[in-house]
Simulated assay, not measured.
Amino acid sequence: MNPTFRGIAYVSVWVVIWGTVASLMDWMLLTGEVYETGTAGQATTFIAYGAATVVLATRFAGRFLATDDPSETPDQK
């Protein structure tokens, strides 16, 4: 598989995961009246989940972005 496509797909999946998980948590906090829409609490929720997602994506990148073929280098097209 093309390394560029693999990288784009990997990042795209993590963006969807971040958006889904952060939105679900935001919805729970909004319905629980922990904070209101547009407040710093809402921004903090999305920033915190974004940071956690970056850490996880970086940590798992080696498993998913490793080339299948040892002779294939990231510079090959």
Rank of each mutant, 00 (worst) to 15 (best):
L56M: 13
E33R: 13
T4I: 08
V34G: 00
V21Y: 10
L56I: 14
P74G: 09
T37I: 05
K77G: 08
T73Q: 13
A57G: 12
T45I: 08
Q76F: 03
W14D: 01
I47N: 07
Y35Q: 01
P74T: 10
V16T: 14
F46W: 15
Y10K: 02
T31P: 00
T45N: 15
A66M: 09
G7N: 10
N2L: 09
V55C: 06
V15M: 12
L65H: 04
S23F: 07
G62W: 04
A51I: 15
D26F: 01
A22G: 12
L65Y: 06
L65F: 09
T4S: 03
S23G: 14
V16W: 04
L24W: 08
T37Y: 11
T37W: 06
M25K: 10
V54E: 03
W14T: 01
D75Y: 05
D26I: 00
F64L: 11
E33Y: 06
I47M: 12
V55E: 01
D69N: 15
A40D: 07
P74Q: 08
A52W: 06
V15D: 00
T4W: 03
W27P: 01
P3T: 11
T67D: 06
W27L: 13
T44D: 04
V13I: 15
L24I: 14
W27S: 13
W14L: 02
W18G: 11
V54F: 13
T67N: 12
T58K: 04
Y49Q: 09
D68M: 07
V21R: 08
E36C: 01
E36Y: 03
V21H: 10
G7Q: 10
T67A: 12
